[in-house]
Design a protein around this nucleic acid. Structure first.
Lengths: 339, 339
DNA sequence: CTGAAAGCGCTTACAG
DNA sequence: CTGAAAGCGCTTACAG
């Protein structure tokens, strides 16, 4: 395993100069640079990341912290898309990706250990129901961070998220344009999550544009699982004046609604129109295929990684929030209101 | 950020002794050990992994290499389960997990870079259609490796996989017991993969037990995607004497079959029985719920990580293959042959 | 443009 | 059971 000394010796220069070539310092003559490059190639040299890390500089490792909540996250292909995006961008920039699925019970220690061991050049947090708590471990140490989500409040920086407001607005407007007025809402959890709040804001804006008020009887709060969608549908669809359309704040809950509707003999979209959110693969496979709003998981991952890498490169700690567009995807689960 | 010197000073001992406590060396008096432990706690000390790595010892990082093939892997929740298992076991043993999704175009260089930079204590390879090529980068350097899959040949060590043979055997036997004789097979790709071979072995054993030969007209080769299942079903179900049952070698292809059957107006399981493989969440959501064989993704991940960590701890390079049991899961997509 | 030297925070023989 | 000292492979002021 060749070291920087071997390269220096072969190229007949000092290790200082080799190091300069490694870090692309400008002030090296073209001739020596080439000699060094040749030596590195010949020896198949690649610098020890451990040594680089020790010197206090860079470890070239980015952390991706996913607060682990089995039911909510796993089985959610959206997560896989985000991971893929982060990994791809990291790799393209010669960074490695450390994946940490923080468990509820020991996440504190895992975070602290990671951070104290000075192993990460920066960290990306995937915001979920559980998250938001342990970030200070990194922030206190001035480790650059990026959030996929909304951060602590809407104004807080360093986050990238999809345009949840717009997505919900378009979804509900779509139902309104089809003539629906009794629109049920299957909401995500009411606490914590800004994404849920934003989807509510979009929902309310759309209703307001039609001078409609929200009917509390048509609202249910779930936890993003299929089961919770099923439960809420059981309740909403049993009402005497049941909704003619439902907007579910994610696809998995929408599929739960679909399942309950089928049990009740309700045809979708004939008797009930249904819109989801996320556009997970499942939504295409459902029968009928689910009308939904695509959330760009891969792009969110790429963007967060990109922003973080820029932060590291420039020695900054803050970037302005980035909002990525969503895409409304009409499929077969919505239809005009029957007269 | 406390260093080992700070701890040593506070505990009034040498760094050597602190280091010994860190590595759980036995020969330290209980009294000094406690003094040191107290000092570490007070200073919130945690050792610099970079320094540890430099000393040539351990980096406490495990690599998970997933040859990246978007269509095949992503959107496959099985992958997420495996990752979860690996991460969980790594974390429980104070290892970190470096995730690398090797792309076809640059996987060579990414592998080489990782390995040469001496960043990994060990590597887990997830075997897929693409893999098997770049392992030598690590093996040549005596970096401990584990494979989730079959490795280079059936006898090769260091691999952990599910009992594909048994799973296929039970799936096909189930269909035979229901009275089916014209059984179609939707196979995975015929090249490379031992898992596919093993599922074939199981299939043939089951048929042989009923003195049946395989009818080549009833076989199609797909690539594990839903679309390929759909294509093959189009062909198999068009035949004059169409199969009365189909065994698909994974769930996604089975869902493709299901979709095509529905288009043709065939009732499942009334007109066609269907069995899949893997037990991805989708198989429960399908209508009817899919009879399948559960592959223990999480357990595969845990076991591979466990074995790898043992290898590292003992300084070994080889372990005997581990076969994890599968579970046959009867649901609603299979029924007795109509008379 | 180039190099000598110190130092990053550990671990590991080696002595005692 | 405990410690002094060398060394792991880099980078970074600092000189020249």
């Amino acid at each position: 395993m060749a070291t920087i000394y071997d390269v220096a010796k072969l190229a007949e220069v000092s290790t200082t100069t080799v190091s300069k070539v490694l870090s692309n310092t400008p002030y090296v003559s073209a001739k020596t640079r080439e000699k060094i490059l040749a030596a590195m190639a010949e020896l198949k040299y690649s610098p020890s990341l451990a040594a680089r890390g020790l010197t206090g500089n860079r470890t070239y490792i980015l952390g991706l912290v996913v607060p682990y909540d089995p039911d909510y996250l796993f089985g959610d292909p959206f997560l896989l898309e985000v991971i893929r995006g982060v990994e791809s961008c990291a790799n393209n920039n010669d960074y490695n990706l450390l994946l940490s699925l923080a468990r509820k019970d020991n996440q504190r220690s895992a975070y602290a250990r990671l951070q104290r061991s000075r192993y990460l050049d920066g960290v990306i947090f995937l915001e979920t129901l559980q998250s938001g708590v342990e970030v200070h471990y990194f922030e206190e140490q001035n480790v650059p961070c990026a959030f996929i989500g909304y951060g602590k409040n809407l104004e807080s920086g360093n986050c990238v998220h999809a345009d949840d407001y717009r997505g919900a607005f378009e979804a509900v407007t779509h139902l309104l344009e089809l003539g629906h007025r009794r629109i049920g809402i299957v909401s995500g959890p009411s606490n914590f999550m800004y994404a849920v709040n934003e989807r509510w804001r979009g929902t309310n804006s759309a209703l307001a544009a039609y001078n409609l008020d929200l009917d509390d009887c048509l609202v249910g709060y779930g936890d993003f699982t299929l089961e919770s969608g099923y439960q809420i549908a059981t309740q909403l669809l049993a009402a005497e004046t049941r909704p003619t359309a439902i907007f579910a704040q994610n696809d998995r809950m929408a599929v739960g609604v679909m399942r309950r509707a089928r049990e009740l003999g309700l045809n979708i979209p004939g008797d009930l129109s249904l819109v989801g959110f996320d556009d997970v693969p499942l939504s295409q496979l459902a029968e009928p295929a689910l009308t939904t709003v695509r959330q760009p998981g891969y792009e969110l991952g790429v963007t967060a990684a990109q922003k973080l890498i820029e932060l590291i490169a420039w020695g900054n700690l803050k970037f302005e929030p980035v909002v990525l567009p969503v895409e409304f995807i009409p499929r077969n689960s919505t239809a005009p209101l029957k007269p």
